[in-house]
Amino acid sequence: MSTVTTPEISLTPERSTRTSLRSRLQDALPKIVLAPSFVITLVFVYGFIIWTGYLSFTNSKTFPSYAITGARAYQRLWRWTFESDPPSSWYTSITNMGIFGFLYIGICLGLGLFLAILLDQKIRGEGLLRPIYLYPMALSFIVTGVAWKWFLDPGLGLEQTLHQWGWTSFHFDWIKNKDFVIYTVVIAGVWQASGFVMAMFLAGLRGIDGEIMKAAQIDGATTIQLYRRIIIPLLRPVFLSAFIVLAHMAIKSYDLVVALTSGGPGGSAWLPSNFMYEYTFKRNEMAVGSASAIIMLMTISAIIVPYLYSELREKSR
């Protein structure tokens, strides 16, 4: 017996070091794998945020200059914020951002939820309908922009076609109209993203426990009550994800405006990202461009961070 146990005893410490090495490696593995992307994010996202913030306090023009000269860029932007008649480019950009952001997110969420509920009625051909709504998301903003530009152009697209069909009083020139051009950006943006939001909601709807719905129906809830009181509240996490996806897409919309309107009549379709690019690269006013980028960052943080905070804290509770 003892001859058998002795080797076992002598083996034990060896095995334990091996397993501990292995388990340590296992512990460290996620960190090792994540390290490169962590470093890259740290430098290329947060590092450059800091750099941009720094530049916004200099008087950088064509090239970065590193002598701090104060907040002149912010003063100019602040002054432009209140120049509404005639509108300064910055005023146009931020009011457009408000209109675009509100309508784009709102309509996408509403339309996406509506489509998802309709598709969720166990209808025939769902497998065909779902990709039809989803596919616009596979197009780049440039393609969407150019296609809608042609479609909305009064001399080329919808208006022209309807005139040829005989409806000559039809008039739709929003894309050429300084007051309405931003709404055409909303139309194109919603067309592209609502199918994607629909897919998110559909996934959410499929994840809801059927027992809950049955229980509600037994208690005598009408369909409207069922959706209003039970299903939509249960979709709250989906709303959060969809909101965050849409909000960041809204604030970074640049290509859509350029492809669809090339800035609009007299620059009336600009969003802050267009303003930032114009000032940094075309007008050689890097400090103003950086300041506007920082303001965009601050604005989006002011909206997203409290929302994330409250949503995530409630979940952990």
Partner: peptide, 13 residues
Amino acid sequence: KDVVSKFVHGQIK
């Protein structure tokens, strides 16, 4: 260019 364009398109009246 901004000013001229805004004049042409009616933001500046």
